[in-house]
Design a protein around this nucleic acid. Structure first.
Lengths: 184, 184
DNA sequence: ACTTACTCGGACATTTGTTATCCGAGATAA
DNA sequence: TTATCTCGGATAACAAATGTCCGAGTAAGT
C-alpha cells in the first residue's frame, strides 16, 4: 500500500477545521513531510473530486463536501488507484492442462476468495468517514487539538515558498518538537 | 499485492491431488509460468512450513498437513510477508503542532481504521482453506479436472531440466492449449 | 487596468520493491 | 560409487513508487 495514503488522510482531517483554503506548502510543513510529494497526493485528491483546488494568491485546497460524506475508502482509492490489489492472470487457461475458455465464464475459485476478502476490506474502510476520524482525534487529544491546527494553518503570517522549503531544515535531525517562532 | 501469490495458491491446490512430490519445474510448466521465479515462491512456502521440500532424484514439494488446515491467509502471508500493508509513520508526532509523545500511547484514529479493515480482510482469507478451493475447482470444472492435473504431474516420463526450461518455448506466442506430447 | 506574487498542475530524476534468472550444495536412485 | 536430479540462496533486469523540479494560471494589491 502506498504510504501517501496516510498523508492524504491526515490532510483531510485537518481540512475539516478550516474554512479558508490551505496551501499544500503549509500542510506539508504542518506535518513535516516533503512538500513536493504531498502536492502530488493532493492533486490526486483533486482529480478524484474530494477536494477543490483554488489558485491565486491566497489559494489552496478545501473539501468539496461535508466530512461525513467522505469515506476513508474514497481517499484510499483516490491515492492508490481504484483497481483491486489482486488481479487474476487466468493461469487456469495456460499450460498443457489448460481449462477450455468456454468453461471460464465465471472467475476462478481463487479469484473469488480474493474478491470477497477485498470487498470486506473496502466495506470496513467505507464505514468510516473523515468526520468520524476528526471526532476520534478530538476525543483522543482533547477538543482543542484539531482546532489549534486549523488556526495555525489559517495564520498565514509568513508567506511560504515551496522551492525554498524543499531543502529547508525539514526533518533535519529527527527533532519532534519545534517552536512555531523559528520562521520569524 | 505480489503477483506470485496467485501462483502459490494454484500450486497448493494441485498439490492437494498428489501424494508423490511434485518438482518446481513440473509445476511451472503445468501452469506455463517462469520456473525460476516459481521456485522462489515455493521456497517461501517451504520457509513458512506450509510445504515440505524433498531433495534428490525424485524429489519435489508436498503439503505438510491436511489441505483443510491450510488457509489462504497462510499462503498470502508466506509469500507477501506477514507484516501489515499499512504502516503508520506517526506523523502526528512531527511538525510544529506535534502531539507530545506521552499522549501517543494508543495508535491514532487513522491507524486504527486501517487495522480494522485489514483485520476484516485477513479474517475473510482465513475462513477459506485450500481444501475449500480444491472442492470449488471440482464443482466448477468437474471432479476429473483436478485429478487429471495430479496424474499429469506424477507422470514423470521425461525428466525436466530447469536450465533448459527457462528459455524454452514457454509462453512463446500466447498459445493457450499445447499438446502433452510436444516433449517427446 | 497592470503588475506582482503566490497558487496549482503536470513533467522529470531517484530510490525501493518486485520480477526474473543463474549457479552451487545436498540427497536420492541407480 | 557415481551421476543426475533436486532445492536453496545469491545475483541482474524491470517496474513502480517516491521525491523533485519548473511552467501555466489566477487572485490580490497597486
Amino acid at each position: 500500500m502506498s504510504g501517501g495514503v496516510e498523508w492524504a488522510l491526515h490532510c483531510c482531517v485537518v481540512l475539516t477545521s478550516v474554512e479558508e483554503p490551505a496551501s499544500a506548502a503549509r500542510l506539508a510543513q504542518l506535518h513535516d513531510v516533503s512538500p513536493s510529494y504531498l502536492a502530488k497526493q493532493l492533486q490526486a485528491l483533486s482529480r478524484a473530486g474530494l477536494v477543490r483546488s483554488i489558485q491565486g494568491k491566497s489559494g489552496g485546497y478545501v473539501l468539496t463536501r461535508s466530512p461525513a460524506l467522505i469515506t476513508v475508502l474514497d481517499v484510499v482509492e483516490a491515492v492508490d488507484g481504484p483497481g483491486p490489489a489482486f488481479v487474476c492472470t487466468e493461469i487456469r487457461q495456460r499450460g498443457p492442462m489448460a481449462t477450455p475458455p468456454q468453461s471460464c465464464t465465471a472467475p476462478c475459485a481463487i479469484s473469488r476468495a480474493m474478491a470477497v476478502a477485498e470487498a470486506a476490506w473496502r466495506d470496513a474502510l467505507r464505514s468510516v468517514s473523515v468526520a468520524d476520524l476528526a471526532r476520534d482525534v478530538g476525543s483522543d487529544y482533547g477538543p482543542g487539538a484539531l482546532a489549534g491546527m486549523g488556526k495555525w494553518l489559517s495564520a498565514g503570517e509568513a508567506p511560504l515558498d515551496l522551492r525554498r522549503l524543499d531543502r529547508g531544515p525539514v526533518q533535519a535531525e529527527h527533532k519532534l518538537i519545534t517552536t512555531a517562532e523559528e520562521e520569524e
